[in-house]
């Protein structure tokens, strides 16, 4: 579904991502874990097209999309829930959701999706006419996910969704992401909260200083002594 081949990205002289290759299969949830500054966000942003890689290639279902601008990547079914949510703060919740469905022309499809999203996040229905900037931190994250879902994504990129959320909300959000599996959405999720994300992921890659240093199924990694020590704090 999504393939990243030997991608390297540097900002000036600083290499943020070095020769990274990853693969995400259809309907899989794949996690990228690692410490702050490991290059996770850069990798996610590169896949979405916010950053252009100096080397390497990115494919979606065998179409090369490496240096396409984000709006063209969106047409390949990519959507992003970026770090901090980055909702459109001056617009209403309604406008944010409609912007998520910007490419969808069929009104009834949008309405159906909207109902689906409301079932997942009933809070969004209550806040429908509110300016998004006035939402609480948790609600903003929910809106960011809801906005991404409105585009009927095939591949959802999620970056540090648990950041700044209280533990109870983290569980809720992770549960929501897990439920996407049954809805035909493929997920690549970058997350510092290793413990939580390994509970919902099928596989994971471990990033350190821009390199992939380890990979495997979530269960394997959870039982790996090195991971336990450095990331799970057990």
């Amino acid at each position: 579904m999504l393939k990243v081949e030997n991608v390297s990205i540097s900002y000036g002289k600083i290499a943020a991502v070095k020769d990274v290759s990853i693969y995400v299969g259809k309907n899989e949830i794949v996690a990228i874990v690692g410490a702050n500054g490991a290059g996770k966000t850069t990798l996610i942003n590169t896949i979405m097209g916010f950053v252009t890689p100096q080397e390497g290639k990115i494919f979606v279902q065998d179409h090369e999309i490496t240096s396409l601008p984000p709006w063209k990547k969106a047409a390949f079914g990519l959507a992003i829930v970026p770090e901090g949510g980055r909702i459109f703060r001056d617009l209403t919740v309604k406008e944010n959701l409609f912007l998520g469905a910007y490419r969808i022309k069929d009104k009834s499809k949008i309405d159906n999706k909207m109902n689906e999203v409301f079932q997942m996040f009933p809070r969004m229905r209550e806040r429908y006419r509110q300016i998004a900037g006035t939402l609480s931190g948790g609600e903003r994250q929910m809106l960011a996910i809801a906005r991404a879902l409105m585009s009927f994504p095939q591949i959802l990129l999620i970056d540090e969704i648990s950041m700044g959320l209280m533990p109870k909300l983290v569980d809720e959000v992770m549960e929501a992401i897990h439920s996407l599996k049954s809805k035909d959405v493929t997920v690549l999720i970058a997350e510092q909260n290793t413990n939580e994300v390994l509970n919902i992921a099928d596989r994971a890659y471990v990033m350190q200083n821009g390199l992939i240093v380890m990979s495997g199924t979530a269960t394997e990694l959870k039982n790996n002594s090195k991971i336990k020590e450095s990331y799970l704090g057990i």
């Binding site: 984000p70 459109f88 912007l99 998520g100 585009s151």
Partner: peptide, 18 residues
């Protein structure tokens, strides 16, 4: 709507397809 989204966060606007 696309214009308003661009004024808010043009990169994110691009990500939703604008």
């Amino acid at each position: 709507v696309g214009l308003k989204a661009c004024a808010n966060d043009s990169q994110m606007a691009a990500a939703v397809g604008v």
